[in-house]
Simulated scan of single mutants.
Amino acid sequence: MANDASNVGVGKPKVGGAVYIGTAGSPAPTDASTPLDDTFKLFGYISEEGVTISEERDSEDLKAWGGDTVKTSQTSYKETFAFTPIEVNPVVAAAEYGDDNVSVEAGKMTIKHNSKELPELPLVIETVPNSKTVDRFFVPKAKLTEKGDQALNDSDPMGRECTYTAMPDDEGNTAYEFMTITGLTPSE
């Protein structure tokens, strides 16, 4: 196998939108090309920083008498997805404050700020790394665990960074990554 520059990619968002949130019970996607169920709603524009996916693995060394490390044991694992929605819309408001805290009428939206715990909801992020690849991340149980500060000024968008922690599903997986790659064949 030789180097192939056509396999190099960047995290470019899918045209028409890239970050979606579902409802409890939304059907899980199983590939990168089947359209998402209508229960998934688009956040809208995300800031130019895009999405940051972080994985943390903590471990502990077990040492023998004399100081040799004889075993390293993983003590924790955590995966997060962080991004800043920059549209002011009901989908973003409900994701950040909960459905029960957002009411929408013709031309009006009211958001109640409180400490009510937010539910775990499915999250989908879609990118097009290069001309032959579509990459879809599916987080079955995403929980909003951190919101950044909101700046009210005349130069920054009115978004705040949202960090979602990916909770393990029934199979112990925090996320699934599905790719459609034109021309990819199984290795022999």
Rank of each mutant, 00 (worst) to 15 (best):
S131W: 11
N130S: 10
D154H: 09
V15C: 05
Q150S: 10
T30Q: 13
A94C: 05
T182I: 09
V15M: 11
F83G: 03
L62Q: 12
V139T: 01
F40T: 09
K71G: 03
H113W: 10
A94K: 14
S187V: 12
K132M: 13
G183L: 06
G16K: 05
I21H: 03
D135N: 12
D149L: 13
G44P: 03
P35T: 08
K12P: 00
P27M: 01
T39S: 15
H113P: 04
P122D: 05
A24F: 07
D99M: 06
G183K: 04
S115I: 07
L36D: 03
V19L: 08
S131R: 13
M179P: 00
V15G: 09
K143E: 06
V134L: 13
A94N: 04
A151P: 00
L42S: 13
A5G: 12
D58S: 13
P29V: 04
P119Y: 01
T84M: 12
K112P: 00
P29L: 02
S131V: 13
V128G: 02
G67P: 00
E177N: 15
A82W: 09
D100S: 14
D68F: 04
T75N: 01
M158F: 13
S155W: 06
D68K: 11
P122H: 08
N130Q: 11
K116V: 11
F43I: 10
T145G: 12
D68I: 09
G11A: 14
D37Y: 03
A175K: 14
Y176N: 05
I53R: 12
P35I: 04
T127L: 02
N89Q: 05
P90W: 02
A93P: 00
S33L: 14
M158P: 14
M158G: 11
V104F: 00
M1Q: 13
P35S: 08
G98K: 00
A82N: 07
G9F: 07
Q74C: 09
I53H: 11
G44T: 08
D156L: 10
G98D: 08
S187P: 09
L123M: 10
N101C: 07
K14H: 11
V128N: 09
G22L: 08
T185L: 13
T163R: 14
P168A: 06
D31G: 04
P13W: 00
V15K: 15
V92T: 06
V134D: 09
V8N: 09
T30F: 06
G172V: 00
G183Y: 04
F178M: 06
E126D: 14
V91G: 03
K112W: 01
E49W: 05
A151T: 14
E96W: 01
G22I: 07
V139M: 02
P27T: 04
F178S: 03
P119F: 01
T174A: 12
V91R: 08
L184P: 03
D37T: 08
